[in-house]
Design a protein around this nucleic acid. Sequence first.
DNA 1: TTATTTTACTTGCAAAAAGCAAGTAAAACT
DNA 2: AGTTTTACTTGCTTTTTGCAAGTAAAATAA
Lengths: 140, 140
Amino acid sequence: MKTNRSHCPINFALEIFGDKWTLLIIRDLIFFKKKTYGALKNSPEGIATNILANRLNLLEDTGIITKRQDPKNTKVYLYELTQKGIDLIPVMLEMSVWGATYDAKTAAPPTIIKRIKKDREAMIKEIKAALKNPQKKIIK
Amino acid sequence: MKTNRSHCPINFALEIFGDKWTLLIIRDLIFFKKKTYGALKNSPEGIATNILANRLNLLEDTGIITKRQDPKNTKVYLYELTQKGIDLIPVMLEMSVWGATYDAKTAAPPTIIKRIKKDREAMIKEIKAALKNPQKKIIK
DNA sequence: TTATTTTACTTGCAAAAAGCAAGTAAAACT
DNA sequence: AGTTTTACTTGCTTTTTGCAAGTAAAATAA
């Protein structure tokens, strides 16, 4: 059993998602509404399949996502955010604003960044609503 | 020369501080106002000295901190946040709230967490003010 | 003035994690 | 019945981390 380095809340967070891949998976689940292993592995950063499988397991173990069979296709599994995962939206938004501010070549849609800055709370609600509604999408 | 995986703002951020130590150093610079190598290495998580030196270099290279000699003691170096580093305060606050929410054994001071939730903007200003004023401290 | 301590690192080596290519098993489609 | 699709696993190399010890220069103490 692995022991915690401390109970500082920042450290607690980093022990779960302090690496180069985990938050990218969560980004895809939140902003692109990806749900399957296949969709997640097709992200532009090119995650290795063993890393993806490992991180999905860790995220499930830490209660950030759940895994279930697709009712329409028994060989497909659906990965979905729990409340604990949904509550990472504010972290993701702040990271997006920071990254968009300091990457001169940022690909972040300016309208989205502006809306985050202008009315964070509304944006958070909108993203949560989009997660529940299969029609809505935040980023295409 | 290392190439970017993508220009997604989240990925941009992760390529800089997507690991288990970098944000802990930034935490110490922001909340505990640590400025020296010695102070940083004494944090409870127990960072190895080679990792600390490496991360301080990377943070300097990416423009998040600056390094200068202590005018009172030529053998001491002072590490200080740039605007790019100060702008990580919102990210740190959201991570703190999330970590404090989901770690049953959290050591986060409840009064601080409440104030972040109640008035984020005021809290951000207060932390910035504390960084400029050598008397003020956010967390002791 | 010399010796010791303090500060900020560096070095070397073992262990763990990441990255890459290929392979597998079961369901589904042709 | 054979091929494709989906979700992984395996094996191997490279890179990163972690740990213990060492170093060099400045400051302090004897």
